[in-house]
Amino acid sequence: MATPVLDKVEAESAASPYITVTFRIRRFNPEVSAEAAWQDFTLEIDPKERVLDGLHKIKWDVDGTLTFRRSCAHGICGSDAMRINGKNRLACKTLIKDINPEKPITVEPIKGLTVLKDLVVDMEPFFQAYRDVMPFLITKDTNEPTRERFQTAEDRERFDDTTKCILCAACTSSCPVFWNDGQYFGPAAIVNAHRFIFDSRDEAGEQRLEILNDKDGVWRCRTTFNCTDACPRGIEVTKAIQEVKRALITRRF
């Protein structure tokens, strides 16, 4: 055996992939204190696991009062959007090795919405804006599902990008205009309006454009691209908003 020491080290590292990671979580419990505060948790965790796994470890093994939303845990339900290391992400799509585990990983609730407890926020204003843009198919003659509504591949491609939205609110809660008074419709609502405005089968595009011509509609967008950066589905959110603006202008002039 020429290199017994090396072999041993390799065997040891293979046996234990765990590293020590500090989670710095923004805790808030209105029944205990009116103030939110940071709390550190130190865990042994595999860096190939996700932030959500870390939160699970804390909740299941360390502190059962830690409160957060998650449903599918696979990046589709849009429940666990949170501000991780200062950036809006889905906890279930963020690997620990990708966000520098050497330093404490900060986890906060998304901004601009009222915090109810720990990482849980009141999503009602967000969904109100979503409902306001009428995110459902509207046709003039009949809404009855009597026949299939055909569409060419090109027509489907037109709004393909905005069909990917999972309503996680990562974009809307990253928007500095939304942070101010929360009256702006927000990127998510505009993306979901875009999905129907540019759908060849839908016939209420004009109504939706009129809704977004609001004082707090698309014209409050400052094209800071925070929403595009934040979107865990990779939707070009700012581009969609600009397309709605262009549609509003070109239908008048």
């Binding site: 009141d122 109100q128 004082k215 014209w219």
Partner: peptide, 24 residues
């Protein structure tokens, strides 16, 4: 009231072309 809540005090519509005109 929470933001975006529909109440009696909420203006019925704040739509109009002023913001579009300003933007243009």
């Amino acid at each position: 009231e929470a933001p975006r809540q529909r109440t009696k005090k909420t203006p019925r519509s704040t739509r109009g072309n002023f913001e579009m005109g300003a933007w243009l």
